[in-house]
């Protein structure tokens, strides 16, 4: 436990000390938040009502999808996992610690956004704090689970960028952050339900902001949690210590199973 805590403390410090992680964890989400906060309410008044959830979901996507996979791939490529293995660092720690530290950084960001947005941009405050925290944690778990899985199965940094962007960009466009779910055409709405951002926005809307959700808000929470758990489990199953020793317990395509909860959800949530 002491070793795990030491490792956690080091990784948490790295999130600020490492320039890339500092950018993905803090500078990028906060910069985008300030930009969107100044621009969007001016051209679209109702945006204020969902500014806080939108920016929190954006911060989670940015920190998880852009911040977690690449360091994992680099660590594997540069022999850091090998050093960890010979010194007794378990695979579980290697995968779970970035999730915990990213979530801690995200808590700080979410706090900054939630406290400052009403003051700076007259944004609507969450009505139900417990719903806000539950949705935040569910989205963080889902995004980090997928991000860790991408880091484990990507063969290189270039592939990491490809897979991460495959989640990040559609989430930004169709995930209910820029265009509300209710305004999407039927098929696009269904497709958007594959993305965690759609479920997070739906859950924030229903459980935290006091609006009518587009579909079951608790259903969205369950899908997010199942996605996160499945993503993390698959990452642990497919984990390999060494880029030169690529023997895995299963084929990389198994990673697509992480989409199963949201695909099943399309048929049950309506």
């Amino acid at each position: 436990m002491k070793a795990f805590m030491n490792h956690l403390a080091f990784e948490f410090g790295s999130g600020v000390r490492n320039k890339n992680l500092l950018l993905m964890n803090y500078l990028f989400p906060l910069g985008f938040y300030l930009l969107m906060g100044f621009i969007m309410p001016a051209i679209n008044q109702p945006f204020r009502e969902m500014l806080i959830p939108v920016m929190v979901v954006f911060a989670i996507l940015s920190a998880a999808m852009l911040g977690i996979p690449d360091p994992l791939v680099n660590a594997r490529e540069n022999g850091i996992f090998r050093s960890y293995k010979i010194n007794g660092v378990p695979a579980l720690s290697i995968l779970v610690i970035p999730v915990i530290t990213t979530t801690l950084h995200l808590l700080i960001i979410a706090f900054i956004i939630t406290v400052s947005a009403p003051l700076l941009f007259a944004a609507t405050m969450p009505v139900y704090l417990s719903g806000f925290i539950i949705t935040f944690l569910a989205m963080a778990i889902a995004s980090c689970g997928i991000a860790v899985l991408i880091g484990v199965v990507s063969s290189s940094s270039r592939m990491t960028v490809l897979w991460s962007q495959l989640i990040f960009v559609p989430s930004m466009l169709l995930g209910g952050m820029m265009i509300p779910y209710s305004m999407l055409p039927g098929a696009a709405g269904k497709i958007s339900q594959i993305m965690p951002a759609t479920h997070a926005m739906n859950a924030f809307k229903g459980l935290s902001m006091g609006f009518q959700p587009d579909f079951s808000a608790w259903g969205s929470i369950i899908i997010l949690l199942l996605t996160g758990i499945l993503g993390f489990g698959l990452a642990l199953f497919l984990f390999s210590w060494d880029s030169r020793n690529t023997r895995r317990r299963g084929p990389a395509w198994l990673a697509f199973l992480v989409l199963l909860p949201s695909i099943v959800g399309i048929f049950f949530l309506g």
Binding site: N6, S14, A75, I80, S83, N87
Partner: peptide
Amino acid sequence: RNLIGVQLQAAGLPESITPREAMRLFCSY
């Protein structure tokens, strides 16, 4: 793990770790 010590040819440690942190981390494991 506790019986063997290994110095790999290619040093692989996180780029932001300091020698003191690395010593504390690996000794704790």
